[in-house]
Amino acid sequence: MASLNNTTGADEPWWASGQTAEPSPVGCWSPCPVAAGCPLRAESAVRCAVTGDQPPPAPPGMAPDLAEAVSHDVAVAVTEAVSLAEVAAAVADRAPSRDDGNDVDWGRLQPVRNLLSIAVATLVPVNHTTAALWVADSISRGGITAPVFAPLGAVLAGTGAVLLGRLAPGVIGLVCDLAWKALACTGRGLVRLVRSPRGWIITRPALWAAGIGVLIVSWRAANHFLTGA
Rank of each mutant, 00 (worst) to 15 (best):
V26I: 15
H128F: 05
W14P: 04
W15D: 04
A119E: 11
F225R: 05
A89P: 09
G165F: 03
I216E: 15
L167Q: 12
G170M: 07
G158F: 05
A157T: 04
A21W: 07
P33E: 12
G189F: 13
G101M: 02
A67K: 13
W180E: 11
C185H: 02
K181V: 12
R198S: 14
L183S: 07
R204A: 14
A161F: 06
F225L: 12
T79H: 09
A92F: 11
R141L: 10
P55T: 09
T7K: 08
A150M: 06
A95Q: 11
W14L: 11
G18N: 07
P197D: 00
V112H: 06
G165C: 07
G173D: 06
A58S: 15
N5A: 09
P151W: 00
A42M: 09
A36V: 01
A10Q: 10
V171M: 13
E12W: 00
L190C: 09
P59L: 14
N6K: 11
D11S: 14
S97L: 14
L215R: 03
L193F: 13
R166C: 13
R195G: 06
L4M: 14
R141D: 02
P60E: 15
R195M: 11
P169E: 13
V148Y: 02
P13S: 01
V191K: 03
T20Q: 07
A35H: 09
N5R: 10
G9Y: 06
V162P: 00
A88I: 05
A210D: 05
A184L: 12
H128V: 11
L123Q: 13
G187E: 05
W14H: 05
V135R: 01
A136N: 08
P39G: 05
P147F: 00
A77V: 06
E12C: 06
V162N: 00
G187Y: 01
A150L: 13
C38Q: 03
R108W: 09
A179D: 07
V50Y: 00
